[in-house]
């Protein structure tokens, strides 16, 4: 699904050269749920940006669902993002002037999907996150957890094969965070591949596979088996 080999990302200013990622390699298989952790400034966000094609990398090889990303131009990257990736942001990033329906509609419009098909998908996704009856509400009329569920609906509407979640529970209280996490786990069980960046070790442990990034490099591999039991233990 995702294959990175010796990816380097260097931020260059007049005075300083900063290596955000160094020889970073990772392979994510279809259907996996991976948590990426690491201290502040370790390169988590840079990894997420490169994985989501929000930024280019300095060198290395990156293949997403069989497409080599390195040679793509800006428009091709935008199209690939739209078709393959669903984003869930820490701050939800909903557009305040659009209602929930219109927010979920945004990526579908960029894909050129017809009105009737858009309507079907939006209603299905809003129902899936439990907000089907609030389609006409504006984001600011919802709680943080509800807003994040709208953001998840927006990410799901394009029926992506790959979800990138950036601290999806970072702005939520523990109850809301648990609801959002359960939703992500359900989506993963339904077949989506999820890579979630988080600084919360408790949350990370709920993912079957953990990656830790330190100083732009892979620090550790941890494979948790039996995530369901772990989730039960947390709830208890």
């Amino acid at each position: 699904m995702l294959k990175m080999q010796k990816i380097n990302k260097v931020y260059q200013t007049e005075m300083v050269q900063t290596h955000a990622l160094r020889d970073f390699s990772l392979e994510v298989n279809e259907g996996e749920f991976i948590a990426v952790t690491g201290p502040s400034g370790s390169g988590k966000t840079t990894f997420l940006n490169i994985a989501g094609m929000l930024e280019t990398f300095t060198d290395g090889e990156y293949e997403l669902d069989g497409v080599r990303v390195g040679g793509l131009n800006d428009n091709q990257r935008a199209d690939l993002r739209n078709q393959k990736i669903g984003f869930i942001f820490q701050g939800f990033n909903l557009i305040p002037d659009l209602n929930l329906y219109e927010n979920v509609e945004v990526p579908l419009r960029y894909r050129g999907i017809k009105t009737a098909e858009r309507k079907r998908r939006i209603e299905r996704c809003l129902e899936q996150v439990g907000l089907g009856s609030r389609a006409k509400h504006l984001p600011q009329q919802l709680s943080g957890g509800q807003q994040q569920r709208v953001a998840i609906a927006r990410a799901l509407a394009g029926e992506p094969r790959f979800l990138l979640a950036d601290e999806p529970t970072g702005n939520l209280d523990s109850l809301m965070a648990r609801q959002v996490m359960e939703l992500l786990e359900q989506i993963n069980r339904d077949g989506a591949t999820i890579v979630m960046v988080t600084h919360d070790p408790e949350l990370a442990r709920r993912a079957p596979r953990n990656i830790q990034i330190v100083d732009g490099q892979m620090a550790d591999f941890t494979l948790y088996q039996g995530a369901a039991e772990h989730a039960v233990a947390m709830e208890a």
């Binding site: 935008a78 984003f87 990033n93 945004v106 990526p107």
Partner: peptide, 8 residues
């Protein structure tokens, strides 16, 4: 965000 969601 729009660009991230696929806007050219």
């Amino acid at each position: 965000t729009r660009r991230a969601l696929g806007a050219r």
